[in-house]
């Protein structure tokens, strides 16, 4: 089982991102679970959401404390919250950032990846410049770095989880898949 924690800010769509991720994995034949951190969500405040992916039905029903990977939707969060908390040794961190992985230092225990999902979202008219919707680009990058889901499963996931601008979202996911800094 793979457990992923998503860090975002309230209103940024972290919960939706965890669900798009789960949907993509489900379309790829996996069993999944996606849920928000059970708290009160305030706009702008740090929020967390979780995704579990497994080959068999997921029975565990507690929140995720020891993730295999962490996705950071907003790089400014790194200053505010400990995004590596509980992250398993050898785990990966995927950051939405225009910087390179080597610009981040989380110690030798983790593998860092960056993707400029904000730029991709803006290029594809997803959301506004002030509030770009980065979910689908992030999922594309996730597919590439983990190899857990194929790109066509990501596209099917977008078809079933995203109600509008499906083509733009798929394009964003493909671009992220192709350009991810490894």
């Amino acid at each position: 089982m793979i457990e992923i924690r998503m860090h975002g800010r309230g209103g940024q769509g972290a919960v939706k991102a965890s669900m798009v991720l789960a949907e993509a994995a489900f379309q790829g034949g996996k069993y999944v679970q996606a849920f928000p951190r059970f708290g009160v969500e305030r706009r702008g405040a740090p929020v967390e959401a979780f995704t579990r992916i497994d080959d068999k039905p997921v029975q565990i029903r507690s929140q995720i404390y020891y993730p295999d990977g962490v996705i950071v939707l907003d790089p400014t969060l790194i200053e505010v919250v400990d995004v590596t908390k509980g992250l398993k040794k050898g785990g990966w961190i995927l950051i939405n950032s225009d910087k390179k992985p080597e610009d981040y230092d989380f110690g030798a225990d983790y593998e860092i990846h960056t993707i400029d999902a904000t730029k991709i979202a803006i290029e594809n008219n997803l959301g506004s410049r002030a509030a770009p919707i980065v979910n689908t680009a992030i999922v594309g990058a996730f597919a590439k770095i983990t190899g857990l889901v194929e790109m066509d499963a990501v596209e099917k996931g977008i078809d079933s989880a995203i109600p509008r601008m499906k083509e733009e979202n798929k394009k964003a996911a493909r671009q992220a898949y192709n350009y991810i800094h490894k």
Partner: peptide
């Protein structure tokens, strides 16, 4: 609540 109500699964 939440552990099921707001958890997406198959």
């Amino acid at each position: 609540a939440f552990f099921l109500s707001h958890t997406m699964e198959v």
